[in-house]
């Protein structure tokens, strides 16, 4: 299962990759903003997306809207510091399947990923 991680923080990408590898997901591609994320997605093979919200070039919300324009079914998990209720609703309306607020624990991430993948 190939997972795309979109986050402008290299530290955060590393932490997510680490967590994913501990739960058995090692086929991972990275992008540092939404625009780069769309490029990686265009290369094919991605089966799940984990994205941040606040990023330069193209933020997570715009990225999700773009992805949904091309692919309505790919599971998308948003991992962000935006914790307000209206933010969460906005992300869900844009097409996010689930939402994790930073800082997260590996168990939370694992649970969300597993619930998305059924």
């Amino acid at each position: 299962m190939k997972i795309l991680i979109v986050d402008d923080s290299s530290t955060m990408r590393r932490i997510i990759i680490n967590t994913l590898s501990r739960i058995g997901y090692t086929d991972i591609v990275e992008a540092e903003h939404g625009k780069a994320g769309l490029e990686k997605l265009g290369q094919g093979g991605v089966e799940m997306i984990i994205t941040d919200w606040n990023m330069p070039e193209m933020d997570g919300l715009e990225f999700v809207q773009n992805v949904r324009g091309q692919n309505p079914n790919i599971p998308i998990l948003m991992v962000t510091t935006n914790a307000a209720k209206e933010d969460i609703v906005q992300a869900l309306q844009a097409g996010v399947n689930n939402y994790v607020v930073k800082p997260f624990t590996p168990d939370t991430l694992k649970e969300k990923i597993e619930s998305l993948l059924g």
């Binding site: 530290t11 932490i15 510091t81 800082p103």
Partner: peptide, 9 residues
């Protein structure tokens, strides 16, 4: 490693 999330926050 997980605690390093503080940097991004």
């Amino acid at each position: 490693m997980d605690l390093m999330q503080f940097q991004d926050i």
